[in-house]
């Protein structure tokens, strides 16, 4: 990957968009415009932005309930994401999904799954369909360290490797499955080793450094497109905020959070590329977010008459 200032600018802008967008979400949550669960990605932006950079519009994405960052980095319009969180019909899932279930057919964004590890089998199947139809595509599956404890993680890695599927597994290891540290739940805390045991090309990278993530993702996609089967990247990262808006954060030390905040992906990138025009992006993004909030505010609520829609396909859907 040829790193240059243009790319550094692009990365910074996308990460800043996620950061500021989510800060606005918190504000909207406290104003009770957004309800339900709200899981923030702040601190982990380098992972989503770095990985998405390696993809084309033909590739597919499966993500978790902490997926605002992936959706924004993929190019799901901020207006539609904010409207979704406001529960409006103009939202990317017509207000039926909310924060945890963002979907967007146009960008091949397949959600937004809130059952930990539940998206892995789906990604395996999508990659299987690409292999069967001989389509030159990659399916990317994001999941957290918590998913590693689920049987579906192991079942899915086995299938992906056995069938040599074009799939990129991105493990966002932020050290905690909700409020329980990985060290209390896993006999082996190096997750990339588990993937390697399924004979998957596997590595562990610094998930706070976007250049490292982007480089690893680009190499992985190239390998996958060469027909070498799945690649697994464990990104070591950290969420700066609580698990959700209901989390009092009693399980981790403030000094630990402070140490990780020194590795803030935005700060690190700016240190490496001092030419990034932060002020310009702050201004641009403030406008985008204001517009998203206005769009969501002005959105309409779906008629209750349509409540039972989308349980089954309308006639003629194929």
């Amino acid at each position: 990957m040829d790193m240059n200032l243009d790319l550094a600018n692009k990365f910074y802008r996308q990460m800043l968009l996620i950061r500021r967008f989510e800060e606005k979400c918190v504000e909207m949550y406290s104003k009770e415009k957004i309800r339900g669960f709200l899981h923030l990605y702040i601190g982990e932006e380098a992972v989503a932005v770095g990985v998405m950079n390696a993809l084309t519009s033909d590739d597919a994405i499966f993500a978790t309930y902490r997926e605002h960052g992936q959706a924004l980095a993929r190019g799901v319009p901020p207006n539609k994401i904010m409207a979704e969180m406001f529960g409006k019909v103009q939202g990317c899932s017509r207000g039926r999904g909310g924060s945890m279930h963002l979907f967007d057919a146009k960008t091949r964004f397949y959600g937004g799954s809130a059952i930990v590890s539940g998206g892995l089998p789906l990604a395996v199947g999508m990659a299987l369909s690409d292999q069967m139809m001989k389509r030159d595509r990659v399916t990317v599956c994001f999941f957290g360290d918590g998913a590693v404890a689920e049987g579906e993680f192991h079942e899915s890695l086995n299938l992906a490797s056995l069938w040599k599927l074009p799939i990129l597994f991105i493990c966002e290891n932020n050290l905690y499955a909700m409020g329980t540290a990985l060290k209390f739940t896993e006999s082996e805390t190096n997750i990339s080793l588990k993937a390697a045991s399924y004979r998957i090309d596997s590595s562990q990278v610094d998930g706070m450094d976007i250049i490292t993530v982007a480089q690893a993702a680009q190499e992985a996609v190239a390998k996958i497109k060469n027909g070498n089967g799945p690649v697994f990247i464990e990104c070591l990262t950290y969420r700066f905020r609580a698990h959700s808006m209901f989390d009092a954060e009693l399980y981790r030390d403030k000094t630990e959070v402070a140490v990780w905040k020194e590795k803030d992906p935005l700060v690190i990138l700016h240190q490496q590329w001092t030419g990034i025009n932060i002020d310009k992006y702050e201004n641009e993004i403030a406008l985008i977010i204001d517009e998203a909030v206005a769009f969501a505010e002005n959105g309409t609520l779906e008629s209750i008459d349509d409540l039972e829609k989308y349980v089954y396909s309308a006639e003629g859907v194929q």
Partner: peptide
Amino acid sequence: SAFTGAGIGA
């Protein structure tokens, strides 16, 4: 679980 989910994905 995985092969049923893979069916959904496919």
